[in-house]
Simulated scan of single mutants.
Amino acid sequence: MLGPLPQLHRWLLLTTALVVGLASGAWIAHFTVLPVAATVGAAFGALAGVLLGYVLVHDWSHRPRPVRVHRH
């Protein structure tokens, strides 16, 4: 986790991870012999980018939430 980031920085980080994952997946798959490999590689790269972005910006600390007590 990179810490509590402002919303704009989170979106920029997620978008960057998605674009890098998509481009790297397509680039790696481009060197295979299958004609559909670039599309499939880009899809898997995009999925990896989304997962990496989630891991980077997710807050893994569990904070206790206040509990409301209703007395009758």
Rank of each mutant, 00 (worst) to 15 (best):
V33W: 12
T15F: 07
V19I: 15
H62A: 12
G3L: 02
P64C: 00
V19A: 13
L18C: 10
P6M: 03
L51K: 12
T39G: 15
R65L: 14
L22W: 09
G25D: 00
L34T: 01
G45P: 06
W27Y: 10
H30T: 01
A23C: 09
H30N: 15
L2M: 12
D59F: 06
V20A: 11
L8T: 09
V19D: 01
A26W: 05
G25Q: 01
R65G: 09
G45Y: 02
Y54P: 00
V55Y: 12
V57N: 07
F44I: 14
L12F: 10
A29C: 08
G41A: 08
L18R: 04
W60G: 08
W27D: 03
H9N: 08
W60E: 13
V36D: 10
R10H: 06
V50F: 05
V57Y: 01
V36A: 14
W11A: 10
P66Y: 08
V69F: 10
L56G: 03
H58T: 14
G3V: 00
V50D: 00
D59V: 11
P66S: 09
L22Y: 07
R10K: 15
L5Q: 05
V55A: 15
A23I: 05
W60K: 11
S61Y: 12
V50P: 02
A38V: 15
W60D: 11
